[in-house]
Design a protein around this nucleic acid. Structure first.
Lengths: 193, 193
DNA sequence: CGCGCGATTGAGTAATTTCAAATCTAGTGG
DNA sequence: CCACTAGATTTGAAATTACTCAATCGCGCG
């Protein structure tokens, strides 16, 4: 499917968080991307598959989850509008996913293959700059989350999540939130609200 | 202090993990760095200070730690030879540190200011590429660690740490390891070995 | 209308923490 | 080189947190 610049103006805004680009450049950039539409419950990445793409969420909501040896589900990331998602390790190293990525809602995505990402970065220094900044940003967010596991108990982690993503949370089931927080559904259920 | 290329040949090797550089380029790159030597127990960054630099460890061992409201210490990162360390969030946003970084051993560091980092990335596309790759790498390592908190209990996290960093661990006290693992010293002490 | 999944509640259990005390160890000054 | 002390480590016992298992409830969807 052909990508129309005006249909992804949010993506331009997203890029402009870190770099300045004009319309011509934006049109150039879009050539490296493809478009994908998925329905609720559909799988974007299945654990075990080779991971060829990273995805920017134009619309919808997805989770990246891990099933452990005991069959328990853990959520490593969720992505709503304007977020990037993939199995990062598998994508960067072009290996098999350990996470599955599934749509919580009908979703629309921009897809960037590893090859195209490298080509884009090589062709446009600006985009390499963008991805560097983005990666630094993702790292610190991740670190912040890690810190909550070190410093806060289940109740506090839940409170923090509520205060940080008040609207997003309403789009997710408590079961999903529990899997994200690293708490059992029952324990989460006993917390207020 | 003047930086001699041959005294930091490990740093060149480190950069060559992601990019190819010749001796001239390496000499150019080094101009953006300064050198610092610290003794055991000395503070590199004190929580509350503005963070102006990121540091590459030529020699030694440092930890980045956070003191919570109850006065408990948590270790968010340790850095031995060939690792980068700083309070990333404070560095990238040029704000005050929430972490303190302290030397566990006498250490030697290459220091890169935020300003110089940006200049270096702007001047040499290669280095922007390097930092992008490095950031992606750091992100996935961090994510892996996060996953252990979601999937493994204290004993398993300890076992994983032992198997992943068998030699590094011998340079750290059990108190420090406990603070890294998110376990009380007493609990860690009860695990085998 | 009923099925099935998600959410809740209860009771017992397991893991980990906390507090307290004893022991060990490395570094310091004499 | 030795004695001393502060910090690190270990051990014990009680308290707390969160989990598991089981049963019930509630509601949206077919």
């Amino acid at each position: 499917m052909k990508l129309q610049p005006n249909s992804v103006s949010d993506f331009k805004k997203h890029l402009e968080r870190f770099i300045k680009i004009d319309d011509d450049e934006f049109a150039q950039i879009l050539k490296y991307f493809t478009y994908k539409k998925l329905k609720k419950h559909q799988l974007l990445i299945r654990a075990g598959d080779k991971v060829k793409h990273t995805y920017w969420t134009k619309k919808g909501l997805l989770t990246s989850n891990f099933i452990d040896q005991e069959g328990k589900e853990h959520i490593i990331q969720f992505a709503n509008e304007n977020c990037w998602i993939t199995d990062q390790n598998a994508f960067y190293n072009q290996t098999e996913a350990i996470f599955s990525i599934v749509c919580v809602e009908d979703s629309e995505l921009l897809c960037l293959s590893y090859e195209n990402r490298e080509k884009l970065c090589a062709a446009m220094h600006k985009m390499e700059h963008f991805f560097r900044k983005k990666a630094n940003d993702s790292f610190t967010k991740q670190q912040k989350r890690l810190l909550t596991y070190l410093t806060a108990d289940a109740q506090k982690r839940y409170d923090l999540l509520l205060s940080e993503y008040p609207t997003l949370i309403q789009r997710l089931s408590k079961k999903t939130l529990a899997a994200y927080l690293g708490v059992s559904r029952e324990t989460l259920s006993r917390f207020g609200r």
